[in-house]
Amino acid sequence: MKYKLLFLGVCFSISLSGQTQKTVRIKPFKSIATAIPEPSDSCFDKKTNHFFVVSDNGVLFETDHDGIILRQKAETNCDYEAVYVNDDFVYAVDETHRNIHIYDRNTLECSKIINVPYSGGRNSGYEALTFNPVKQSWLLFTEKNPVTLFELDAQFVITNQIALSALARDISAATFNEGFLWLLSDEDRTVFKLDPKTYQCIARWELPLINPEGLAFDAEGKLLISCDDMQRMYYFNNPEKP
């Protein structure tokens, strides 16, 4: 009996050891079915109040708040898993070939393709891209096996790498909001808020969604999550201002 209690105690301790922070569950207040097949990431364009969304079959879409497709640009032999927009360009990341396609945001013409070599699994390549304004560096994340954050300079040359496998089983999206780095894990169905200098986790929220892959904040600070398998986009109130 004594050993059984000891065993249960050890198991209970193990189960608690991975949860140093409280995970809060949040619920969407609205969801939209989208015509975009397998949406794998999204980002918010502050200039137009639109979203850019990429899909697994290599198509870049621009949509409004209701998921209505406004423009699209297709590439062959591509598996887009990450997208980022700034004042001049839209950046779409092809996971399979480790390429960053750079589009003119006005014309959606692809002006450049940059290869960032990565020797990990074909389907465990770059899954998220964003820009860290605090460290003035691009951030690329591998999905899993292992989860790695790469810092890159303006020419997309890797300057630093940080292991993040302890944070989540996978990373599927990244964005910046109000000076903090936000990450999304598909397998853990969790959104993380990280310190942009140390990459330490500050807070986390659990999502009641199947296969969440895209993460963005709109102009009002509302959180948009796109789900690949469900082909839906979910709106949440800002988790810090519920």
């Binding site: 032999n77 399979t96 990565y118 020797s119 389907n123």
Partner: peptide
Amino acid sequence: MGAQVTLSNGKHVLEIS
């Protein structure tokens, strides 16, 4: 292949596992 588990020439992608 060294430590690589995925090789690519831009068109052909090969994964070793």
